[in-house]
Design a protein around this nucleic acid. Sequence first.
DNA 1: AAGCTTATTCGCTATTTGGCGAAATATGTC
DNA 2: GACATATTTCGCCAAATAGCGAATAAGCTT
Lengths: 102, 102
Amino acid sequence: MAKSTLKPADFKPQAQVFKALGHPGRLLIVDELSRGERCVCELAEMVGSEMPTVSRHLSILKNAGIVDDDKRGTQVFYRLMTPCVMKFFQCVCDVKSKGGAR
Amino acid sequence: MAKSTLKPADFKPQAQVFKALGHPGRLLIVDELSRGERCVCELAEMVGSEMPTVSRHLSILKNAGIVDDDKRGTQVFYRLMTPCVMKFFQCVCDVKSKGGAR
DNA sequence: AAGCTTATTCGCTATTTGGCGAAATATGTC
DNA sequence: GACATATTTCGCCAAATAGCGAATAAGCTT
């Protein structure tokens, strides 16, 4: 256990998850997916960007292990892989409200 | 407040927090600060970057409300504002383990 | 097969981020 | 005041990111 010599590179996998969540549009997508699966075109309309853009966002989220997809016919439905991701939101609100001791 | 029409911009504050955590070096800093306050030069040595670089990382974390600083003499000590941030790590591990254990 | 729909990949450009060294700022010491 | 230490800000450049439209792929329907 070389816990005393942790390097930045050791945090790369976790950083990838945070980075994937570090975008307003992607957070909106995650929030929406917490209420059920959605296809790309539904999400594109919500986010207000073109489909290629949203598709790219989804691939980033998928790559980070946050969502997964399910192709049915011509559509692709995305869903949250880990509901625990939603706990982030509450915690982030705590950070933002700056409650301090917690 | 019509919450039915949430827009990406509504998630900007939360995205800022995630973005701040979306960097390996900054995660290392947060991890280290979870064990107590540290001055910039200590963190710089840990991260392995020059002090200007680390100082910038710290300002990003501070701006996101994740850390706060305390100037004492010529040194500046940083500390975690919300210990709850550490819960993120566990949750991220969940995300990662689900993605890999298949 | 032709045509329509849905989604992804590609090519491009604009913006942002990350890192460094140099310069500036602040505090303590002599 | 001159000097040393700790930190931040500035100026620059390389790399990554975000967005779009065009092109491509895959699946229905007729």
